[in-house]
């Protein structure tokens, strides 16, 4: 106990962050970080396997990113530059709240630019800009078990993973095809990691699935309420489940972003009025802003000569 106490107190006060909060660097105590770090290492060694961990109560509600926050807090260091997105945007309230949490408790630099970030915590999207080696993408995961909605029992799904028995998933996907002519899963679309574990990519649109395959970045997944951590190392095969006669496809949008004219990106639909008026804009706000800064103009901005690209 004496050693533990020595470590905790010796490490506690550092930088402005700690003076402001009275909490340890990045909020979590060292004992908790060690437990999470061990889980992360095993997750990396067994790609796609969900490592159980003793998730702690965090000062934000379960379902709001407690798993991602615990992973980020255990990995982040004073030299990291953190980006936080929700729905692809740095500006959504929960992203702002989590970014502020780390700026306060870890004193780290934050950014909205994908390229500048060393760590990116995300909910529901993978950035459009390709990630690079050395970057870490941390996903907030609500339901880590890809088989959960087919089989609610943990004891059952654990056995299915142990045996690599994924028939139940293939049957479900094939039933979709029989009924609708195609697979009706549009987000949280299951993937097979390194030829072994079937894994939930978290509720990202299936549009983002191909970005997981052979990504140069390390991908870490944290599910706080469900007490699971898992990982996809860089340069790892990530295959979206499909069938030879029904290959996996991603969403395509007919029109480009109305603000930056980008194509081949994921778009949000913005309802403009109650008469069916709508427009489509980039879900990745940083990507959109950088394109506009580079002079790209979508239909909504074509005549406005850059006066409205600085939306608040």
């Amino acid at each position: 106990m004496s050693a533990e106490t020595t470590i905790e107190t010796a490490g506690a006060p550092r930088g402005a962050a700690d003076a402001a909060t009275g909490y340890n660097f990045a909020y979590l105590d060292e004992q908790t970080k060690r437990m999470i770090r061990r889980a992360i290492l095993k997750g990396i060694a067994i790609p796609g396997y969900q490592v159980p961990f003793a998730s702690r109560e965090m000062p934000m509600p379960y379902g709001w990113g407690t798993g991602g926050v615990q992973v980020t807090a255990s990995v982040i260091g004073p030299d990291d530059v953190l980006k936080v997105i929700d729905q692809g945007s740095d500006d959504t309230t929960n992203a702002v709240s989590i970014r502020k949490f780390f700026a306060r408790t870890a004193g780290v630099a934050t950014t909205t630019h994908t390229a500048e970030a060393t760590m990116i915590q995300t909910r529901h999207r993978i950035p459009e800009a390709p990630l690079r080696e050395g970057q870490i993408l941390v996903y907030q995961v609500p339901i880590p078990e890809p088989l959960r909605l087919l089989e609610p029992r943990e004891t059952e799904t654990r056995t299915l993973h142990a045996l690599a028995e994924y028939g139940v998933m293939h049957v479900k996907l094939y039933e979709d095809i029989a009924q609708h002519g195609h697979i009706a899963k549009t987000y949280d679309y299951p993937v097979e990691v390194n030829g072994r574990y079937v894994m939930a990519p978290s509720p990202t649109p299936k549009f983002d699935n191909p970005k997981m395959e052979m990504s140069p970045a390390l991908q870490l997944f944290g599910a706080g309420r469900e007490q699971r951590i898992y990982a996809v190392p860089p340069y790892t095969r990530v295959r979206s489940l499909d069938f030879e006669d029904h290959p996996f496809t991603i969403q395509r949008f007919a029109e480009p972003c109305a603000l930056c004219a980008a194509t081949g990106v994921y778009l949000d639909e913005v309802v403009l009025d109650d008469r069916g008026g709508r427009m489509f804009v980039c879900s990745d706000s940083d990507h959109c802003e950088e394109r506009r800064a580079a002079g790209h103009r979508g239909t909504m901005l074509a005549g406005a000569a850059g006066t409205e690209n600085d939306h608040a």
């Binding site: 529901h124 987000y187 509720p203 990202t204 549009f207 778009l267 949000d268 639909e269």
Partner: peptide, 8 residues
Amino acid sequence: PHYVDFQA
């Protein structure tokens, strides 16, 4: 917000 999934 769940609008990314809702869009899908």
